[in-house]
Design a protein around this nucleic acid. Sequence first.
DNA 1: GTGATAGTTAGGCACATGCTTAACCAATCG
DNA 2: CGATTGGTTAAGCATGTGCCTAACTATCAC
Lengths: 115, 115
Amino acid sequence: MLNQSAHLDRTFHALADPARRAMVERLSHSPATVSDLARPLSMSLPAVLQHLMVLENAGLVATRKQGRVRTCEIAPAALAPLEAWIAARRAEWEQRFDALASYLDGLQRQGDPDA
Amino acid sequence: MLNQSAHLDRTFHALADPARRAMVERLSHSPATVSDLARPLSMSLPAVLQHLMVLENAGLVATRKQGRVRTCEIAPAALAPLEAWIAARRAEWEQRFDALASYLDGLQRQGDPDA
DNA sequence: GTGATAGTTAGGCACATGCTTAACCAATCG
DNA sequence: CGATTGGTTAAGCATGTGCCTAACTATCAC
C-alpha cells in the first residue's frame, strides 16, 4: 500500500494512450504474442515493445518468454486501485451532495414548518 | 459518443499526475478558488493554472470567474467513461475465465461421466 | 551448417510536458 | 487616486514520450 500514488501515476499514464489501451483490450480477450499485438497497430515492433514495457511496468500486463516467443497476458488486479480511487472520489462528492440536499431540506422545513 | 478514444486519452492523462489528482481530491470535497488549489501544492501559480487547464480540458473540472476570483468545481460525469472502459475490460476477461471454467468442467464430465 | 522467424537493443529525432521567472491585467481596498 | 490581491500571459528550459531505422541475438526449420 505504500507509495500508492506512484502506482496510480503509472497505471493512469499507461492507459492514457490509444495504442496501449488497444493492447489491453486485445489481451482482455485472450493472451497473445508480441507480434499478435503489433499486427493491428500500424507501428514498428520496437515501438510496440516500448508500449508493452509501459504496460508491464504498470502491472497491467504480465509476459513470459518460451523459446523465441513472448506471450503476454493481462493482469486484472492492476485496475483495482484505479477503480478504488474513482469510487473514493464519488463517495466524497455524493456525501457533499447529500449534505447540500439535507441543508436545503432544512431550509424548506424552517420556511414552511407545516410541510 | 464519437471520438470517445480522445476523451479517454485526455481523462486518463489528466489523472496520471499526483498534483492533478490532489486537485481533484480537493475539489471532490468542495469547490475552491485557484489559490486554494495552489496552496498545498508547493509549485508556482502558473504551474497550477496549467494543471487546471488539463483538468478542464478533460472535462473533469468546471470553472467560472466572478470578479477577480475563479471558482473551480468538480464535474463528476467525466469519470463515467473511465469506469465504463474498465468495466468492459473486466467483462471480457471474466467471460474468458468462465469459458475456461466450463471447458475444464466439460473435460471433467467427459473423463468422469457419472459425476 | 543455412536461412527464416521472433524479438531485442541502440541511437536519434521531433514534439509534448512540467516547471520556472518576469511581466502584465483587472477587481477590490483604503 | 494608489496599493494590494487574484489571476493570467509569455518565454524559456530540462526532461520525458513516441516514434523511427539499423543492427543485433536467439530460436526454430530444413
